[in-house]
């Protein structure tokens, strides 16, 4: 199924649905680069969209990340069923400037809320998710030593928003543990010298107002290809003017990609919710 077909389905169904707005502004977060609801690079325990337990929500996004020698373009969509299940799809295009090639990958995601509510439960909200990745341009991945062109990440995420916790400002954190063997998120295939393992990913944010959040993220990644694959970091600011749209900008430090260091740059993302 192509993303265009998926999106046209979403837009056909939309008018028949009510606009889901059962959640507090900004609390679902934004869309991460693999299509799941989250921060920019980390999938969070919250489900995308404003659906509460009696509602269905749909959302779509496009993001662009430009670092020194690479750029990533990704568009995708999510459905939130009763704040219990999130289904997502994303198409990534990764431009490798030094080789003048574009790598393409499709990601199908599902996330299941196991327990809790970001704001109200005593314990954090917990979700279990998976991201099934299909690399469509596998030649470079295989040439670098990857074993597979498909892979599935499984993650457990916990998140909590603490009302008024930092001098009256709301504080949100998310911790995700991801079982993966993806190289550069899958764009350089799956596996290599090492087998799959668990890697931590962390996010922390402060809401400066009900419309603006600033925060940081960290994502540890495997180095299966022996190319010094490094962790990723970002600092972001997200703007939520209303429950239909949000904009995110971030400074990225992706360190070393495919053996080429100093990959810093900027990230912009736009999401729409229904």
């Amino acid at each position: 199924m192509t993303i265009k077909r998926f999106l046209s389905c979403v837009f056909l169904i939309l008018p028949t649905l009510c606009f889901a707005d059962g959640k507090i502004l900004a609390t679902p977060g934004v869309s991460q680069i693999e299509g799941s609801g989250g921060g920019g690079i980390v999938p969070w325990a919250q489900l995308a969209g404003y659906a509460s337990e009696d509602e269905i929500a749909a959302s779509a996004f496009c993001s662009v990340a430009n670092v020194k020698n690479f750029s990533l373009n990704v568009c995708g969509a999510q459905a939130n069923l009763y704040d219990r299940v999130e289904l997502s799809i994303a198409q990534q295009q990764f431009d490798v400037d030094p080789l003048n090639v574009t790598l393409k990958q499709d990601i199908y995601g599902a996330k299941f809320r196991l327990y809790g509510d970001l704001i109200y439960s005593n314990w954090p909200q917990f979700s279990l998710g998976l991201q099934h990745k299909r690399l469509k341009t596998a030649d470079i991945a295989f040439a670098l030593g990857a074993k597979e062109k498909q892979g599935t990440d499984i993650y457990l995420a916990a998140s909590k928003l603490h009302l008024g916790a930092i001098a009256g400002y709301n504080f949100l954190w998310n911790a995700t543990f991801r079982y993966t063997q993806a190289n550069e998120m899958g764009l350089l295939g799956f596996g290599g010298k090492n087998s799959a393992a668990i890697f931590p990913e962390l996010s922390a944010a402060i809401l400066l107002s009900k419309h603006i959040a600033i925060g940081i993220e960290y994502r540890k990644k495997p180095d299966n290809l022996g190319l010094n694959e490094s962790h990723w970091r970002d600092m972001f600011i997200a703007w939520f003017p209303n429950k239909h749209i949000n904009l995110t900008a971030a400074y990225l430090d992706l360190d070393t990609i495919a053996g080429i260091g100093n990959q810093q740059g900027f990230y912009f993302s736009l999401s729409g919710q229904f």
Binding site: I166, A204, I216
Partner: peptide, 22 residues
């Protein structure tokens, strides 16, 4: 984890703790 990131996380978490105690 890089020192800068570690520092930022430490800052935010310690701020959150002091926020609670206030």
């Amino acid at each position: 984890m890089n020192k800068v990131t570690l520092f930022l996380f430490f800052m935010i978490f310690s701020a959150s703790l002091s926020g609670c105690s206030t």
